[in-house]
Simulated assay, not measured.
Amino acid sequence: MTTMNEAKEFIPVRIAVLTVSDTRDMTQDRSGDVLVSRLEAAGHVLADRKILRDERAEIAQQLRDWCAEPQIDVVISTGGTGLTGRDVTVEAHRDVYEKEIDAFGTVFTIVSMQKIGTSAVQSRATGGVSNGTYLFALPGSPGACKDAWDEILVKQLDYRHRPCNFVEILPRLDEHQRRK
């Protein structure tokens, strides 16, 4: 059973949003808009937002650049998680991950199954950690972004969420890189 510890103070995190698309620009980025509106409504801070083409090396470099920024705690990408030849976002994320959050993709699939049935098998949502930053790759549909945010991320990115959440361990993600 999950609960909220209302005695704890909410801690906003700084989130960068990356849309991966060969065809969209900011005026057509409905999935990015969904993520921005939800993260801001939850009390978090939009740290940066970009759109990149489906190019693995460029996506991975942008992820690395954001992970090197101390002002960014979380990166959420949308798009490029499917099965076609141009869908390379998952591979780009995995090029950057130090650790993969295996259960994120599993939980996303469970959530998706309730909405779209067996079509959920075509999604390759993934999550991981690099350089003290959380990274999540979501499908490019607004519905998938709503589902991932509303059912998983809004809770895990809330310090008050019990029994545990991503925010409480955020300061320790890069402890292996610190001098002893």
Rank of each mutant, 00 (worst) to 15 (best):
T78E: 11
Y159R: 06
R14S: 08
T106V: 14
V74C: 02
R24L: 13
E40K: 15
V88T: 07
P163L: 02
S77T: 15
G79V: 11
A42R: 05
K99T: 09
T2F: 15
S130L: 01
T81C: 11
A125F: 01
I51T: 12
E98N: 11
R178F: 04
E100R: 14
G32H: 01
Y159L: 09
A7N: 13
P142N: 06
A41G: 08
A137F: 02
W66L: 03
E55H: 13
L18N: 00
A7L: 08
V167S: 03
V121M: 14
R64H: 12
L170I: 10
R38W: 08
P163T: 02
C145A: 14
R14P: 07
T2W: 14
L135C: 03
D95V: 04
I72E: 01
D102M: 07
D29K: 00
L63T: 12
L46T: 15
E40V: 12
T89H: 02
T23A: 11
G140T: 05
P171A: 09
L83C: 13
L52K: 10
L63Y: 12
A41S: 10
T78M: 13
L52W: 11
R14H: 06
D150G: 03
R64A: 08
E58H: 09
M113E: 10
V121G: 12
T2N: 13
A57T: 09
T81Q: 07
W149H: 01
R24T: 09
Y134C: 01
